[in-house]
Amino acid sequence: MSKAIVATTSLAGCFGCHMSILDIDERILDLIQLVEFNKSPIDDIKTFTKQCDIGLIEGGCCNSENVHVLKDFRKHCNILISLGECAIMGGLPAMRNGIPIKECLREAYLTGPSVTANTEHIIPNDPELPMLLDKVYPCQEIVKIDYYLPGCPPTADLIWETLVALLKGTEINLPYEVIKFD
């Protein structure tokens, strides 16, 4: 059986979900028997070099770059999975969603009590910088998402069980311990 190709990325997330991928511990040795990683922080491949079977998305979209990356993933991955709370609901970054973006930028760069160094009163505008979106969007509002793995982060066992089930075409084993959050 040829190896399945997996890509991963972290958008507006904290890399906690990627840490959870590593928490599969020594099973990672089994995993690399089954899959080959393409674009992913795990192997540091920056751009897609081929069509992938599975894409794992950590984090929602808070800026224009996130949107481009997510759309790129949709294009290059046959199955796209939202991994964790931020990808599914926006998570912690979405706490700003109740505040108008202009107010957020003003507070962060101009008027906030900790703003001391910005003597020129600039809101960053380098052409290299992606622009913030008006709010943080969950991934499924921007592209079609095939599966959702809840958790903050999803447990290593949940990630493992999901990948194995997808790769082997078997039913996923979801005991209560794997999806409980309290």
Partner: peptide, 13 residues
């Protein structure tokens, strides 16, 4: 995308 970055682009000028 254009709609959703309109305000932050305005803020940055």
């Amino acid at each position: 995308l254009a709609d959703s970055v309109r305000e932050s682009c305005e803020a940055a000028g």
